[in-house]
Design a protein around this nucleic acid. Structure first.
Lengths: 221, 221, 221, 221
DNA sequence: TATGAATGAGAGTTCATTCAT
DNA sequence: CATGAATGAACTCTCATTCAT
């Protein structure tokens, strides 16, 4: 009897998680297409194939859903990177790989890209996990003498601003072939690397990012 | 009789223009606060203190209003610059001044900054007047040997992306003192100027931008 | 568990049908009073005592409602007749009974009459079920030699036009006693019957139509 | 000086009448196209090329306009007939000609036809000038022994109902060639004429109606 | 009188949220 | 927990009518 109850509880737990997952996936798809402002709860529940009422069992407010979506998406990137970007790699290469991984994910999963971009523009405050991580990489580069010692806040504006613009270009189909490589190379020269080396590292990192993505996909399958 | 009619028509024309201006000003205020997606026509007419119906006498659709607002705002910047940024100034200085003027306007008129930023993210296609103008300045710099010969599309991503981020930082109060100067200096080094000269030009251009703004204000008053 | 779910679904289905019926009944009342053009959704929901939003759960557009109303009303007549007008009755008698049944329903249920009349004049294409049915009766009469062999289209204009006018007279209280009997008799002579017989058949058919209506009412009760 | 004043007053009077006429013509055109319910004052003034305010100087309420329009249209028919349908013609011929004139006008000026039909369905009470006139013709026919002595109210239902239906058929393009002739012939047999003679009179009257219309057009030109 | 900008009541429509089942 | 019918506030848009010029 007890076993039965426990099993049932576990099954219920499982179903719950599944429904939640379905709602999140649906939300990503819907937001990617219509944007977070135009998307209605009706759209979410229709795409997730659950009832209106069920939605509220999982997300008391729309904002809760958006936060959860954002978390899910950021995790998607972080997992890819954390698993495959050892800290033994030098700072410049790591920073470049980090950026290329982002662009690669945007290219291969535009829905992901749109949602991340659109959620940034919303009332939800920003997550700074990414800022912190990039800041650290830059400081490492300064410490090892490959990066110039620039003001961290200014650097952040340059990296994030440029990256968001590149992301937008990719999503809108405005990025010519090789755009990402060139932009990352420019950023590396900005940080102090000689042009030639910057280009080499950018190209190399693009390749590494592609490999990481491929591996992480194998794993998922 | 004829004079009378003409005078009447002129007066009517005048009143019309005033109402339109009231609506545009109100729209700037409202959009700056709530964003173009959350703003309702109700908000606009309440802020402009006109009736619902009047709105439609001027703007058949909300999009028409947004376009008019954007035009008005871009004109605000362009007029300032066109009047006071002679093409005799070398490319690096002009580019830097252009950016600093933009930041100065954002700082002194945050509503302007918010609206410009938020309108960029909307369905309205973007105006490329600014792109073209900056592209030209960069090419001039390349021609005169002060800028490296980089891919124009990549350069554009860096300039616009970084600028938008700086604008956001200013608007959110996240820009520390001197932020703009440092970022512009970094951009100039990216384009090939030696760090010291880049910093000098950035600081100088910031000063020039402030002067231009002051002059244009005097004029308005 | 399953029984429970099924019962629940059935109950829900039932409630839905009730609401729909409430809306349709309300629509008949409202349209009968104001006409389909002047009637607003507000009127419908107020008369049905449901909320604005509920309306749209049932009828995406006003036209959908009008179509449903028309269907409901036409069914009301057709059901009565189909059940009680055996085809064994000769053509002249059947045609006359058909007309008198229509008039009887208009007299006893003016709302029905108004709505049918007003819906005819609307953008909704007309139902031709009635046309076809009357055409057939007339042709039968021609085949059995009781009716003259007149152009069917012309006959249709006479029957329908006259009937609509009689209906209007009844609804506006302009029909003197015996009006229907006299008009139907005239139509029968038009179609070739001798005056005396036409009058006899018209009177008889009026009686039969009354009986049919009485029976169908008993049944409903 | 006095002459001047008088001349000016006359000119003013003239302009007033012209404006009114312009509004009425515009209303006929607009109502014919959109129907009296869908037509807005905006439509009227735009078509008449006068200002909104002017409209109210001529027609305090929309109903006033509709009444005036109806009057104008009915006059259009009456003028045609009164001028050219001498009372010396026998009753059957006159009645038939009257009907054919109506159909001819509908055919040659559909806007006229639509407006007359649509105005009938409106809240404006009906004009009974036409009823009275047709009643009289029928009674004359009875007195001279060509028509059967039928109930006048019933006759009226048959004539008007059928005529309205024919009008609708013409306007909707549903009337086959010769439809009007056949229907009028049927009506004449209904009233007691032998079929052959009915057909002859109908055909003849159709010709006469066409002539009358042609003459009245010459005159207008 | 003629004008047309301004008005605001009211119609149509959407959608987040509640709640009985 | 899941469901989905019901709700009503909020929004967009139309149009007859007014009124200062």
């Amino acid at each position: 009897m007890r076993v039965n109850l426990e099993a049932r509880a576990a099954a219920a737990e499982n179903r719950k998680a599944q429904t939640r997952e379905r709602l999140l996936d649906a939300a990503v798809a819907v937001i990617g297409e219509k944007g977070p402002d135009a998307a209605s709860i009706e759209d979410f529940v229709a795409a997730a194939n659950v009832s209106r009422g069920t939605f509220y069992n999982y997300f008391p407010t729309t904002e809760d859903l958006l936060r959860a979506v954002r978390r899910k998406l950021i995790d998607a990137l972080t997992i890819v990177l954390d698993a495959h970007l050892p800290s033994s790699i030098p700072a410049a290469e790591r920073l470049a790989t980090r950026l290329h991984s982002h662009y690669a994910l945007v290219s291969s999963d535009p829905a992901w890209g749109w949602v991340v971009m659109r959620l940034e523009a919303t009332r939800l405050g920003r997550t700074n996990a990414m800022e912190v991580s990039l800041d650290r990489m830059y400081q490492e580069g300064v410490a090892t003498g490959v990066f110039r010692d620039l003001d961290p806040v200014a650097v952040r504006s340059v990296i994030f601003g440029t990256s968001r613009m590149v992301q937008r270009d990719i999503l809108m189909g405005l990025a010519p072939p090789g755009h990402q490589e060139r932009v990352v190379a420019i950023l590396l020269t900005t940080f102090g690397l000689p042009p030639q080396e910057a280009e080499r590292i950018s190209a190399e990192s693009a390749r590494r990012a592609a490999e990481i993505q491929a591996k992480s996909r194998q794993r998922a399958a």
